[in-house]
């Protein structure tokens, strides 16, 4: 009797919070998975089952591999600078810059600004003729790229905005992690005459490694899901040079109305994300010290 009531209680307290999870996450995912085996066009009420056609089409299409390449490029070049700049800023703050809280909030403010708003401002900054960046480059007589309208530079522009937004956020995590490193570890290395770089290598990097892992995984997921900045600044162009997997999904679903193909791509994205996160977690055993 008591046991039954216990089970009921458990179901009640665990079950109720799970309901939204089911309704808004699990259920749509199942529907999406189901749609990926159909040729639904988003509008007509009828559709046919097409088996794994959508998957084979996707996995054999050039656009998919182009987008995959773009996604990997974008991810690597946002994650690595975000981590390095974040750690560097945190180290600067730790050295006790004057006006600490002021700096911290300035650096953190991009993170709380909506990506859409930021992207709009940045697309002005990146304008080829009147944009701020090219103005500055002009003063120094440096080349002034076409940024958003040149397929060689458009992805870099998107990357710069994304790093700009995320670095302050990474800094906050690192600042907290750095403040937890006991001071006497630095003193031990002072007595031995370790240089600044040696201290970074032997103390800081290993001791913030759990935060680094966390940031890498979150930033990777964030990079795979990047949408706002691409939509506002380049819409995947020019010539598909900023079309990531997620943006490709959006175009398939809401520009070409090819829901079956799009949901198949979505499933592949989820799989890639999962495999990536898992493998990072696994690989981390070698370099993360808890």
């Amino acid at each position: 009797m008591g046991r039954l009531r216990g089970t009921f209680k458990l179901l009640f307290f665990v079950g109720i919070p799970l309901i939204p999870l089911f309704v808004f996450w699990f259920f749509p995912m199942l529907v999406s998975l189901w749609l990926s085996f159909t040729n639904w066009d988003y509008i007509s009420p009828s559709f046919d089952y097409v088996g794994i056609d959508n998957y084979t089409n996707t996995l054999t299409s050039e656009t998919f591999y182009e987008a995959l390449k773009n996604t990997i490029f974008f991810s690597v070049w946002t994650i690595v600078p975000t981590i390095i700049i974040g750690l560097f800023l945190a180290l600067l703050l730790k050295e006790g810059l004057k006006g600490l809280t002021f700096f911290r909030s300035i650096l953190f403010s991009p993170w709380i600004t909506p990506m859409v708003a930021m992207s709009i401002v940045w697309s002005w900054i990146f304008q080829a003729d009147v944009g701020l960046i090219n103005q500055i480059l002009g003063w120094f007589h440096l080349p002034q790229p076409q940024w958003l309208t040149d397929s060689d530079t458009a992805m870099w522009a998107i990357i710069i905005v994304t790093v700009w937004k995320n670095a302050g956020w990474a800094m906050l995590f690192y600042a907290d992690s750095l403040s937890k490193i006991p001071n006497d570890l630095y003193e031990v290395s002072d007595i031995e005459g370790a240089s600044w770089l040696q201290k970074i290598k032997t103390i800081v990097i290993p001791l913030v490694s759990p935060i680094t892992l966390f940031l890498v995984i979150i930033s990777a997921i964030d990079a795979i899901q990047a949408y706002d900045q691409i939509q506002v600044m380049t819409q995947g162009g020019p010539a598909g040079s900023t079309r990531t997997l997620l943006y490709l999904y959006y175009q398939m679903a809401f520009e070409q109305f090819n829901m079956g193909q799009a949901t198949a791509l979505a499933t592949i994205i989820v799989l890639i994300t999962g495999v990536l996160a898992l493998s990072m977690f696994y690989a981390s055993k070698k370099w993360v010290h808890y």
Binding site: L185, E187, V188, S189, I191, A194, L207
Partner: peptide
């Protein structure tokens, strides 16, 4: 000089061997 700290000040990510060897490695 060599100093011993109250809270040991050992490097948590290094083995005993590497902790003892720390100063020598830096030097």
């Amino acid at each position: 000089i060599a100093m011993v700290f109250q809270n040991y000040a050992l490097f948590p990510h290094l083995t005993v061997f590497d902790n003892i060897a720390f100063g020598l490695k830096i030097r």
